[in-house]
Design a binder for these strands. Structure first.
Length: 500
RNA sequence: CGCGGGGUGGAGCAGAGGCAGCUCAUCGGGCUCAUAACCCGAAGGUCGGCGGUUCGAAUCCGUCCCCCGCAACCA
């Protein structure tokens, strides 16, 4: 076993239902998990929901239900994604879980406090009487609440603060030396720039009067923790930090945090600062993805262009969606989701290229040899070696879309290979030896393709293996080119991707 | 002069000093193992504008224009 690798997504805010952006994050993390586990690393994959906070409390009040009820309902929708998106996570953590999550949060809070980094101060904020809640400056239109057209009041309450300012310099060093590695690199530049401007201390709690739906501050029942300590700590509570669990010791801090570009600052500044203060090692790697636009526009409720991953899956199946999200959206950058482009990629890459290749190879094997190929030595394709080398390099660098491109170039190559070797002519000539060699090369190549696509489209990978007559799981045994492997019997031949 | 990303054939992207490339779409041809699939070929770009460095610039420098994020309590 190689080094353990721990993979996390951000925890989704359980305030509304999942949309395609979060689906991308889940699927990216899932691809990393499947890849590293296939390559022999011991992995642990965590996701979950963030359920506390004023917004959650407010949404529940509007619906006339308790925040707990709303959280349960929405968390359910996120948990359903495990089957819908075919996710391989090991644990799903909910911040409302008093047994699994809260003890770790309280422990981190106490350690930070013991270290003298929590203090009381006045917190000033804008409050709209109409909304009966806090409002951020960003939400204001012309300095007024956009709903009530009223200028908000400035109110202040006494809260606990975290001495974030103390950790700017050391975090800067950790990022520069790549002890905290941020991928892609331009995101690191962004955050270093912000740190240079100086980090302010942040408010770490709210009065229980404004926020009752959260984790109580230890030894002060008038205060409830604000999002930072509560939500970010999920990454270690999910491993069993407070229990000093074996899992925690094994996997922390060898982590890849998969997050969106909107929350880079929280993960590269606030989170490491909290850990430094609490005497816990900082995370190794932070992978930042971009946003998905819908038909070229930002997704928003008012435009009505929010894409529900369920709608895509219903029509095309989960792997078509996974393929698009992982192959078509450049890693780390924004990408667009358009129905037309999606349809085009589905047809050209999955139906015509991969699906048709499998189908023609299997049908020839059946037609010319009755489904089994006699033992015969084949040379390794140069293309095969090149493909694996490039695939592994890209995957290790987390460049999913480039790795996928490499695999599909190989598929392309194999389609050309059939055109060049013309098995139908070999059959007519009665050249059984050449014919069996050609088909063996194709079958063996397809076996390797099932491995390479497994992190991206696992269901298809296993489906292909069944049709090829291979073992169900992803085999770790025959990693190299099998020169004389018998092809005993192929399975039942089915269309891999239907034409839609 | 806040910070960052981007502007390359119809669409989506790659290339970061030396004949402008890939995928899709289009057009022409070929093949018949295959899901009207596959293979071969062609057309299509003054690489956002202007100026400079250089024997040579999409690539380096300057300047301007346009799009998209971030700009601290937004999950």
């Amino acid at each position: 076993m190689k080094n353990p690798i721990y993979i996390t997504t951000s925890i989704a805010y359980a305030n509304s239902k999942p949309h395609i952006g979060f689906a991308m994050e889940l699927v990216e993390a899932d691809a990393f998990n499947r890849y590293f586990s296939m390559m022999g690393y011991e992995t642990y994959f965590l996701t979950g929901t963030d359920e506390h906070g004023i917004k959650q409390q407010k949404t529940a009040e509007e619906l006339g239900i308790h925040p707990k009820e709303l959280s349960d309902k929405n968390a359910q929708l996120f948990m359903e994604l495990k089957d819908k998106l075919n996710l391989s996570y090991d644990n799903f953590i909910r911040t409302s879980d008093k047994e699994k999550h809260w003890p770790s949060v309280v422990q981190i809070w106490n350690k930070i406090k013991e270290n003298g980094d929590i203090y009381k101060d006045k917190y000033e904020a804008l409050y709209c009487n109409g909304c009966e809640s806090f409002i951020t400056e960003k939400e204001l239109v012309d300095g007024k609440c956009p709903i009530h057209k009223k200028e908000p009041d400035k109110v202040s309450e006494e809260n606990y603060f975290f001495r974030l300012s103390k950790y700017g310099k050391i975090i800067k060093k950790l990022i520069e030396s790549k002890e905290i590695e941020i991928v892609p690199e331009f995101r690191a530049k962004e955050i270093l720039n912000l740190i240079d401007k100086g980090l302010h201390d942040i408010s770490f709690s709210r009065s229980k009067k404004t926020l009752y739906w959260g984790i109580p501050v230890p030894d002060d029942d008038t205060q409830v923790m604000y999002v930072w300590c509560d939500a970010l700590t999920n990454y270690i509570s999910g491993l069993g930090y407070a229990k000093n669990d074996e899992q925690y010791k094994k996997f922390w801090p060898n982590v890849i945090h998969v997050i969106g570009k909107d929350i880079v600052r929280f993960h590269t500044a606030i989170w490491p600062a909290m850990l430094l203060s609490a005497g816990v090692p900082v995370p190794k790697k932070i992978f930042v993805h971009g946003f998905i636009t819908s038909e070229g526009h930002k997704m928003s409720k008012s435009l009505g262009n929010i894409i529900d991953p369920n709608d895509i899956i219903k029509i095309y199946g989960v792997d078509a969606l996974r393929y698009y999200l992982l192959s078509e959206i450049p890693v780390g950058q924004d990408g667009d989701f358009s129905k037309k482009l999606f349809q085009e990629r589905y047809i050209s890459d999955l139906v015509n290229n991969l699906g048709n290749l499998l189908n023609r190879v299997l049908l020839m094997t059946k037609k010319y040899f009755g489904g089994s190929i006699p033992s015969i030595k084949t040379d390794v394709l140069e293309e095969y070696n090149k493909t694996w080398v490039s695939y592994i390099e890209n995957m290790n660098n987390l460049y999913l879309n480039k790795a996928s491109l490499v695999v599909f170039s190989f598929i392309d190559f194999l389609n050309k290979f059939i055109g060049d070797t013309k098995p139908w002519e070999l059959s007519k000539k009665g050249d059984t030896e050449s014919l069996s060699r050609v088909l063996k090369i194709l079958l063996e190549s397809l076996r390797h393709i099932t491995r390479m696509i497994y992190p991206f489209i696992p269901e298809t990978s296993l489906n292909m293996r069944k049709q090829l007559g291979l073992e169900e799981g992803i085999d770790l045994k025959y990693i190299g080119w099998e020169e004389v492997l018998n092809w005993e019997k192929i399975g039942e031949i089915k269309i891999l991707f239907p034409r839609i």
